[in-house]
Structure formats: C-alpha cells, structure tokens
Nucleic acid binder design. Structure first.
Length: 310
DNA sequence: AAATGTGGCAACCGCCTGCTA
DNA sequence: TTAGCAGGCGGTTGCCACATT
C-alpha cells in the first residue's frame, strides 16, 4: 500500500551545501540523470534528504540555469505574467528560460515589488494605489473645473470601453488564453526584432510590452470605431486614465504615457511607439526606476482648455 | 573600529496534488 | 477504492555581506 517514505529525516544534514556535496550530486546526476530523488542521496553518498537534493539541483546546480542580474526585458515579462498568473512562480519560471521559480520569487520580493510600491502601484492588484496619487493637485489646477471633469466620460468612445471590458473579462476569466496570446506575440515580435536587428538577440529577450502592440492593432477591427480625440500628451493621459479604469495595469500603466509624438488619430499608435522605447537597455537600477516612474505621470498642462476640449 | 541595520538569496517548511500499490 | 507517499509549489526563515551610524 502506498510508497515508502522518500527519506528518513533523522540524522540527515541540513543547511548550506558544501562544494563537495555539490560535486557528488552533479557527478551522480551526470551519470544517472535527475529523478528518483528518494534513492539518490544514498546512491550518491550524500547525507541529505532527497527533497533537499532535488531543490539544490533545480535551483542551483542545473547546467541550464542563467545566473546574474535580470534584464529589463525579463523584468517586464515577470511583471506582465504576474499580473495574469499571480504568485504562480513556477508557471512564470516556465516562461523564462534558465530562471528558477525560487529566483523569480526572490527577485520579485526584493526588487520588483519594492519598485512597484515606490511607483505607487499595488504589486498584488497591479493597480495604482489611491493613497499614492496626489489627487489634490488635479483639483487645484487653475484650468480645471470639476463640472468639466465630470463630463470627461464623453471623451471616451464607447467602443473603446467595450474593448477594455472585453480585455478585462478575457484576462480574468481566461488567463490561459491571454497567456497564449502573450506567448504568440512574444515569438512573433522576437522574430521581427531579430530580423531587423540581426541574429544576436535571442527570442526570449523580446519585450512583453509588445503585447500592447497586438491589442492595439486589434482596435481598427472594431466596427464603426472612430477615434474622437485629437492627440496630445495630456489627452492621452486622461484617456488612459479613464480607459484603464476596469483593467489591470500592465496593459496601460506600464506603458509610457508621456509619449507625445504619436500620429494624429491614434492614442494606440503612441503606445506602440512607447513599447519600442521599452526595448532600450538600462545599466542601473536608477535608470530603470526613473524610466518606470514616468509611467505614473498624469500631467495636466496649464494651457489645456477643457471647454474647447469637450 | 565596532555595533547596528538592511538587503539579497539559498534553503527549509509545510501544504497540496497526483500517482502508485 | 483508498491509504500513503513523491514531487511540486509557495511562503518563510536565517545566514551572510554590505552599508550606515
């Protein structure tokens, strides 16, 4: 009935692994392959629990593990996947070749989570924290009166709201489908970038922000879609702010709202452009953070006349 | 130079799921 | 069918290195 216990915990060593133990484990697995963790410690001459051996191998000794700092693209990918999967570190790791769930989990808790908090984004919900936004500055703006602000919903094309809602529903009800789309897009864009930049950039380095491209490209397919606002940075900001109301962050907030040179009829186009900007490299944490902090800028210029706008 | 604080990360713990006898 | 285990997983802990006082 059942299996025998994987190991007798009594008398087994715990704590950090020594180089000698590592060597024994590596040599054994090179000869016999991973698996059968229950018998492995005994056969390899290790005073360890099989579970400990498995963890040591999968999290540290495996030859295909990528060591070193996470790239900006990897970080984007983690944030995007976390917004869909939550704390499913193994599922996230499965989409980041060479990274372990433990490593991603640690990196999330020590770096990304803190950065999002500093940006005023709730790392659990991926939405802005209301206690972070300085709403008073909005209401104190000399050009802004409250009645105009309340009428702002007229700016938003109902079809856009429908699209936003559709995306939200697909994200919450069918995350697997969304993941599939993300991966398809990752592959597609990886190839495109590779074609344009040469063969030295691996596909798995492609920015997850490019998923935005795919979503935005779908917009013209909406029947009777007619963008009803001209494009300026502030209009984008306000639209973005309203547009994302029921959406989780990554599709909107992690894009660069400050993009202002977009073509005339497309808020989405400007977001596309911004996604390319995301492909740049950042050599320091400060640069990354500075760049990311731009996501949260909602500036209302003095010159904005809401009466004309409406 | 010593004490204390903080961050990063490897490793452990305990629960859950699926498999096996 | 079911008891019981292996393996997988997420959360937590504890150690170490570095920074600050």
């Amino acid at each position: 009935m059942g299996r025998t216990p994987c190991c007798d915990k009594n008398g087994l060593k715990k704590g950090p692994w020594t180089p000698e133990e590592d060597q024994k484990l590596i040599q054994y697995i090179q000869l016999h392959g991973p698996g059968n963790w229950r018998n492995l410690p005994k056969n390899a001459g290790l005073q360890r629990c099989g579970k400990s051996c498995r963890l040591r191998w999968t999290n540290y000794l495996r030859p295909d593990i990528r060591r070193g700092r996470f790239s900006f693209e990897e970080e984007e990918t983690i944030i995007q996947l976390h917004s869909v999967l939550g704390n499913k570190w193994s599922a996230i790791a499965a989409r980041l070749p060479g990274r372990t769930d433990n490593e991603i989990k640690n990196y999330w808790n020590t770096h990304i989570r803190k950065r999002l908090l500093r940006m005023g984004i709730d790392p659990v919900t991926h939405r802005p924290r209301l206690d972070f936004l300085d709403l008073s500055s909005l209401f104190n703006s000399t050009q802004l009166n409250l009645s105009s602000l309340l009428g702002l919903q007229a700016l938003v094309n109902p079809e856009i709201l429908k699209l936003a809602n559709t995306l939200l529903v697909s994200q919450t009800e069918n995350p697997e489908l969304l993941l599939q789309k993300i991966q398809e897009n990752q592959l597609l864009n990886g190839q495109q970038i590779q074609n344009s930049l040469g063969p030295n950039i691996p596909n798995n380095q492609t920015s997850m922000f490019q998923y935005n491209n795919q979503l935005h490209h779908q917009v013209p397919e909406i029947p009777n879609f007619t963008p009803n606002v001209s494009c300026s940075s502030s209009h984008q900001s306000m639209n973005g702010q309203i547009f994302q109301e029921n959406m989780m962050l990554p599709l909107q907030y992690y894009s660069n709202y400050s993009a202002s040179d977009a073509s005339e009829n497309s808020t989405f186009q400007s977001l596309n452009n911004s996604s390319n900007q995301n492909s740049q490299n950042f050599s320091t944490e400060e640069e990354k953070e500075s760049y990311c902090s731009n996501f949260m800028k909602f500036e209302i210029p003095e010159s904005l006349d809401f009466d004309d706008f409406l």
